[in-house]
Computed example of a mutant assay.
Amino acid sequence: MKTLGYYNGKFGPLEEMTVPMNDRACYFGDGVYEATLARNGKIFALKDHLDRFFNSAGLIKIDIPYTKDELAAILYDMLAKMDDKDIFIYWQMTRGTGIRQHQFPEKGTKPNLWIFMKPGKPADSGKRLKLTDMEDTRFLHCNIKTLNLLVNVMAAEKAESLGCGECVFHRGDIVTECAHSNVSIIKDGVFKTHPTDHYILPGITRMHIIQICKDNGIIVDETPFTMAELMDADEIIVSSSTKFCSPACEMNGTPIGGKAPELVDLIQKKYTEKFENETM
């Protein structure tokens, strides 16, 4: 199949799938999600994504009615039905179905599992990104991969309208992350990235890049940095499950980065090798 949808055990072409109007995703965005890529029938970094998925669900008190192995088996069963070599995979769990009310539905209401798959390749991380920025007005639980993404949507649309590849969030002058990516900087050979507190999502790609830096003698500094530091950085790196490790070249029309291409090349090479080895 070219596209495939899943809802609580029912499979079908994505464009033909429907969900109940009373699913709590429809009114509250009451759920959590994950997304990653697959190649050659192998799902990249699945354990890391499942760990984060279960952690996000636990933080909003959703009891996932599957083990990690059971959920992995469902994903692989779907993946086997896909025609393409490179696949984008998305799944979410909502709190369940019930008449709209802010309180949780009655005890015993089973959470709903949504999945979709479509053709999808990693972005070309060799192409430098133009960036814009926006004040970070999201709520203070950004570490939960929640379905509530309205501010992210507005930021992504701003970037799109300006011909930019991402929008950088900042709270005052402190950089947090991007609309749908993490953002880090390199300065004087040090890889600097916001700590994994409640202001940012603990990115899987970010985590892997940190390990790559440590394995290759690049100092890692997990402390907040400012917009001024970002503008003065040797390199600015945007990272996500689909962007991988993408350097930036411009912020609101001002040139940035491009001063340590050898370190960017090293990180990109090592990350691509990891992806290719795990999906071989």
Results as ranks from 00 to 15, higher is better:
250 E>V: 09
39 R>L: 03
245 C>P: 01
71 L>D: 03
52 R>N: 01
243 K>S: 08
210 I>V: 13
262 E>M: 03
186 I>L: 12
16 E>S: 08
218 I>F: 08
143 N>Q: 07
235 E>K: 09
141 H>Q: 11
185 I>G: 08
215 D>W: 01
82 M>C: 07
138 R>L: 11
232 D>S: 14
208 H>W: 15
213 C>Q: 01
21 M>I: 11
267 I>T: 01
171 R>C: 07
47 K>W: 14
232 D>L: 12
260 A>S: 12
39 R>C: 07
90 Y>C: 04
109 T>N: 08
49 H>L: 01
236 I>C: 14
17 M>T: 00
14 L>H: 04
94 T>Y: 10
128 R>T: 10
131 L>Q: 05
48 D>Y: 11
199 Y>D: 14
275 F>I: 02
114 W>G: 00
145 K>D: 07
236 I>P: 08
219 I>H: 15
87 I>D: 06
53 F>N: 02
219 I>F: 13
32 V>W: 12
195 P>N: 09
124 D>E: 15
5 G>M: 00
52 R>H: 01
118 K>W: 08
141 H>G: 13
12 G>Q: 02
38 A>F: 05
175 V>K: 04
64 I>T: 00
185 I>A: 07
78 M>C: 11
224 P>S: 15
72 A>T: 06
278 E>S: 11
55 N>I: 04
26 C>E: 13
130 K>T: 07
8 N>E: 03
60 I>C: 15
26 C>T: 11
205 T>N: 14
100 R>V: 07
218 I>N: 08
161 S>Q: 15
173 D>G: 04
248 A>D: 11
228 A>R: 12
234 D>A: 15
35 A>R: 04
89 I>N: 11
151 V>Y: 14
8 N>M: 03
148 N>R: 05
252 N>L: 12
267 I>G: 00
266 L>F: 05
163 G>Y: 08
197 D>Y: 14
112 N>S: 12
26 C>V: 12
166 E>L: 04
219 I>Q: 15
194 H>T: 10
247 P>M: 09
59 L>D: 07
203 G>H: 05
122 P>E: 06
110 K>P: 00
46 L>K: 02
195 P>Y: 13
72 A>L: 04
7 Y>A: 02
274 K>N: 14
223 T>N: 14
31 G>Y: 00
225 F>N: 00
274 K>H: 10
